[in-house]
Write a protein that binds this DNA or RNA. Sequence first.
RNA 1: GCGGACGUGGCGGAAUUGGCAGACGCGCUGGAUUUAGGUUCCAGUCCCGCAAGGGGUGGGGGUUCAAGUCCCCCCGUCCGCACCA
Length: 841
Amino acid sequence: MAIETYYPFQEAEPKWQQKWAERGLFRAQIDGKRPKAYVLEQFPYPSGKLHMGHVRVYTIGDAMARFRRMQGFDVLHPMGFDAFGLPAENAAIQRGVRPADWTEQCIDAMRAQLDRLGMSYDWDREVVTCRDDYYRWNQWIFIKMWEQGLVERRKAAVNWCPKCQTVLANEQVINGRCWRHEDTEVDVRQLDQWFLKITDYADELLRDLDDKLAAWPNLVTAQQRNWIGRSEGALVKFKVKETGEDLPIFTTRPDTLFGVSFMVMAPEHPKVQEWITGRPNEAEVKNFINKIVLEGRERRTDEAAEKEGCPLGITAINPVNGREVPIWIANFVLMEYGTGAIMAVPAHDQRDFEFAKKFNIPIHVVIEPEGQKLDAATMTAAYTEPGKMVNSAQFDGMDSVPAKRAIVEWLAGRNQGEPTVQYRLRDWLISRQRFWGTPIPFIYCEHCGLVPVSVDELPVKLPKDAKFGDGSPLAGVPEFVNVTCSKCGGKARRETDTMDTFFDSSWYFLRYCDAKNAELPFGGEAQSWMPVDLYVGGKEHAILHLLYSRFFTKVLRDMGLIKLDEPFSRLLTQGMVLAEGRDPRTGDVRFFKMSKSIGNVVDPSEIIGQYGADAARMFILFAAPPDKDLEWTTAGVEGIARFMNRLWRYLQTNLEALKKGFSENGDVAPSELASAEDRALLRQVHETTRRVTLDMGERQQFNTAISACMELLNALYGWELRDDSLARRLAATAMSRLALLISPFAPHLAEEIWSQIGAAGLVAEQPWPEWNQDALRVDEIEIALQVMGKVRGHMMVGVSEAEEAIKQRALADEKVKQFTDGKTIRKVVYVKNKLVNVVAN
RNA sequence: GCGGACGUGGCGGAAUUGGCAGACGCGCUGGAUUUAGGUUCCAGUCCCGCAAGGGGUGGGGGUUCAAGUCCCCCCGUCCGCACCA
């Protein structure tokens, strides 16, 4: 009769969690003698409840942290909370609770859940961004940035989310909609706002992607490259005939300059208003501008949108040939990019071509494909490829590619243009008209104007209460707003905008290194711990958090706070957790991202209650490689629980033998074993050790590491545990090894096995096991016998057997003979320890 | 359109450098234990075939003694950006 034995995780898990805490095993210390490993997962927003996605990131990070600790690294594995943000304000509106109280409650609940999962954090370093011992350093950094000229307050066209009731950074607008409200289009408003000059670092942010972040996933570096959008070209000055002023434009195609047949300015271009004022068509132009602006940016930037334009009735003079061309305004030219004005070459740019056709503007061909003539009258599309220059004066006959440079040099010599680089990246709009964020430490003095708060007056604390609902909550708190100027003592008004919460998360990884520093945001300890060796987080931050953090690191470096170019040497972007659900539209059953609307959310607490934290952790690591999406299935979790119980049952069934074996003389050495079965098992113990070590350390493939452990257990079940000392010791070697190897994934079960078998101390403080090359060695190995690349049989060979002898034996093999019969042997290939391939025809 | 990732059994996924495709797990089939169900254990499970054998990693070509892996051309899926001059 089968023994009904189950691993009692309900008792075991809290017991070991308490022991780890008592021993302070996860407190990070660095002595410089041992290698360090900074393992970090993106900290959560404290919503009050962990979801499966959290469990996945934190399990991956914890497995790595535990592994590195056992390997003898000094490990920093901290946790904290990204605690500023709108949900706390919504809670204030809906339930009348203070954002601070609500947030702190949520933090307590989430910390408890993380502990229940057995996460090995150094809680002494906890960082909570909404506490003033953290956000005061946001303010400090902000003022230092101001001093460095990296902060600007200026009027600009900015994105406004009507739901958030605040402005957003460009990175937070997705297809014209708010990143938190997919259903909400953002408006464009002209407002005075605070910007961080991330564009000053555009070039370095781009360059370092190539070499310093070679270990990052391509997906992320490619997205960042795309976002920064470097583009080389030239600035060319056209002269406006009617006013004598310059109209500078940016182009990547100076080789097409001789083909310019019109110019286009963005409708918002400030010069437009100026130049048309008092002209006969003033009203017409203004009507057009209004129409375009009212359409909204999203409609306007849709590629499918019809090209619309309006001539200004003024002319520009082409610096290369003196040709006079009309200036238009049109919906497809954006004020934010380049100079807000372009030269249009319909023959060689598809947009310009469509526009010219629509409005009957001449087309001048200036580049032709090798050996071919282009006729402007019959062209149906722009020719955008390189080719031979024509109709371009002294440049005729040149290849268009080198001609770019030649033309720019020629222009530069006459002071009419210069080579230049444009970026798509915009400065980071950092101010928010919200309450629950870091107050921007500035005041507006009636006499002195904009004055930064002096750093020794920090923090500028948030008031406890405010009125939520309408407009900026801080503006409605007079005690907060009304101040005296620190310079002149006169009446002043405090800035009521707060910082984008991405400011908070752009440097929290540095604060963990020195979390209690009261003098500086962080000190020298950061130099010892940084960079983060493994950063685990979601792909959704590919540009946003990850770009901002890179920017901050470079800024803080240039302020002299740390010597460091990049914060995260290795990045692991984990996939989503999916579960089966029914498509609300088609009714199909398939896997979806867990969501309330589909009703396929699996609550981690329920899983922990039913199967235990270890089963949840192990399933998550086993079901898919970390960077891929994971399909959550109950059957899969049960499969893992079954493995854990099988392991447990082996221990219980053979407990006396294992305890005895463990107490007798330690691990078995290869030289002690005679029988082939024993040697095979010991070899597998070491082979498993090797595989798990490499899968974890080199490849971060936890799924295959766990498979290897399963195979070892299967082998142990298939091996006969005899009633003798050697066999007992071998079984104990295998069992104790399994405890060590699974401990990064299932730390509680590992401790329970370790203690039951009679081992001293905690698994969490054991050194990681090493594999023994002697144990891996074999005398004989089975190789494949192939004829013409097809496997026809197998054969045992001695590891030191001569190649020639092996080939002869292979040729003499019955199966091989059967397939080579009547054919000529052309060649015999031997691959050591793998196969013999006979080529015969 | 540009950029990135990917395509292997019924399913999740394995396969360091080109070297026995399908490890491990789920599911399924048969059997044992059990009053029964569950649990547990044993055997099987890429496809065709009674077998010998043949076919097989999205499709088509190529290199090679040997290709899931390398090269070329297609097809498809997913993700990001998108009138950026």
